[in-house]
Write a protein that binds this DNA or RNA. Structure first.
Lengths: 313, 313
DNA sequence: GGTGGTCATAACCATCAGCTATCACAACGG
DNA sequence: CCGTTGTGATAGCTGATGGTTATGACCACC
């Protein structure tokens, strides 16, 4: 069986429409900047593919057959749709050249961190636009993985970490957030291995990859599997789960203010690693805007006495 | 300067949409019945052409970039439009296989000629549909030239006569049609060269080709150019021009009843050739329906004692 | 630390779109 | 009546390209 291809090349339609407009192969060919034989061959190929003639070639000129007349508006529309598609892509690419999309897993906060970076960034790129996007914790890369963001404020560790270049903004101890009514709330500080192994925790979704285990401090549990009280994917969900008593959760020191609104308190925890908050961008992304933003970040981090250090991974 | 082609092949869009649906090159490739490298190459080519990536390839899968997301609906729509176009063509071709479109310059009339042909034709092709189309005299081939009709009742001579195969239905003397108030209306018969050389005539449009001169009987004028009283392109226009006194006109005997309605009379004319009314179809048209209709015509013409003869050119 | 799965790359082959040169044919003009 | 002009079609060639198989790099999972 002969597999007849049902596709069409845009070029064929363009040729067809031009011949239909000129009703003259030679003139159409020069309008199309191709030789007349090339045009003839293309039209014949299209006719062969469709199974019937589109034009009647006559001494006095060329005329459309009914079939050709039937096809013409569709061909025009198809070319128009393709033009729309191309300009949509063009707009999208232009947008990506001029605007920087910043993803964030949690609000950076930390007293003017974002404005400080922004002012340095806009000094280097005064015409660049900035777009901020809050990304669900389902995606630990905060949009970097699917290119929906250009740079992102995220927590280490990241999945596929070599794909991303990170600038550490803060290395902070992790605190325990818990309802103020919780028995442990009376302690001034808490020992992880002694007090928390049986405690139900709020956990990130599985899709968060290594972060899932990281915020459960699985490394510090000595093989004892954690109890999961609920799954949370945003700051708001975390707060609600805390006050509902579904579990306790580790938070970075810098994020504590976001969660200790009412009925929730935080306590220092002994025996777990501090957290590292970073600005990341894709390693294979060489566009100027993300790099400039990362550079601004390094400058701010280096001059920021509150954060642990300005080291760039 | 590099001339970057702005066209796209439908195949590329189909591939793109499939990958976007599967978010998996290998699965998409087998759905498309191509090898995975072929698919990868095509997508890369499309990305290169558009100037930016459409997908992010990741260990965990494939995701659309914002650009890809922007393109996707347009790609889908384009494929849909092409499907519409193809089915429009398909409908047109199917229509042409099952229905016979008959063009006519003037109503065939002549006492049941059309029904007689039709009954023989439908006997041979009971499922065929017949469509009658009145064609302006601008086109002396009554739609054969641009394939808008399959067979046509027309007058000889035709332009590009070798392109058409004709069956003579009637060879009739030409009469003069004129207003009953015209001085010549009192004559029982009229001599063309003696009485009509200075008379204004109704003429066919120039586009009618050889018919233009034929119905002015230019051959019988001995080089004297005809006077044109008006240009007419249909029976109705002719009648109106006659009663308006714009000129006189030659008509075939069989068409006289169409024109002698009120205030118009016909008279025999000496010294001009008779007219030949034929059923024509394109010589290069080998489809069964037109041939069957021509065959039916030959049978009717052969048994018709009124017409001159059933000869096939 | 294989093993299986992903997509990318390489090397090769067939097809095809483009070119130039030419043909077939009709119309026109001397 | 015969060359000239102008039409679209054809032939033969070349470079580009879409397809194949085989293989590579990389990661996840036993």
């Amino acid at each position: 069986m002969v597999m007849t291809t049902t596709d069409v090349h845009g070029r064929e339609l363009r040729y067809f429409v031009t011949v239909a407009e000129e009703l003259h192969f030679t003139r159409a060919a020069e309008r199309l900047y191709v030789s007349q034989p090339a045009l003839s061959k293309q039209i014949r190929a299209l006719e062969r593919q469709l199974g019937g003639p589109l034009f009647v070639r006559d001494r006095h000129g060329v005329t459309l057959t009914p079939t050709g007349t039937a096809l013409l508006p569709h061909a025009r529309r198809m070319l128009a749709v393709w033009d729309e598609g191309r300009s949509a892509v063009e707009r999208s690419l232009a947008d990506q050249r001029t605007t920087l999309t910043i993803g964030m897993s949690t609000s950076p906060g930390r007293g003017g961190l974002l404005p400080a970076i922004r002012s340095r960034f806009t000094a280097a790129h005064p015409n660049a636009n900035i777009r901020l996007r809050q990304i669900s914790w389902e995606d630990p890369t905060a949009g970097l993985a699917d290119a929906s963001t250009d740079v992102a404020f995220v927590w280490l560790p990241l999945p596929d970490e070599h794909r991303y270049t990170c600038t550490v903004l803060a290395e902070e101890p992790r605190l325990l957030a818990l309802p103020e009514t919780h028995p442990l709330a009376s302690r001034p500080e808490i020992d992880f291995a002694r007090d928390l192994l049986d405690e139900p925790f709020l956990a990130l979704p599985d899709s968060a990859g290594p972060l899932h285990d990281y915020w459960l401090a699985t490394d510090s549990r000595g093989g004892v599997p954690p109890r999961i009280g609920a799954e949370v994917a945003s700051t708001e969900e975390t707060y609600e789960a805390l006050v509902a008593g579904l579990g306790v959760v580790l938070v970075a020191t810098g994020n504590a203010p976001l969660i200790t609104l009412g009925g929730v308190v935080t306590r220092p925890v002994l025996g777990i690693e501090p957290s590292r908050y970073v600005l990341a961008h894709r390693t294979d992304d060489h566009r100027p805007l993300p790099h400039a933003y990362a550079r601004a970040c390094r400058q701010v981090a280096g001059s920021n006495s509150v954060t642990g250090g300005g080291k760039t991974a």
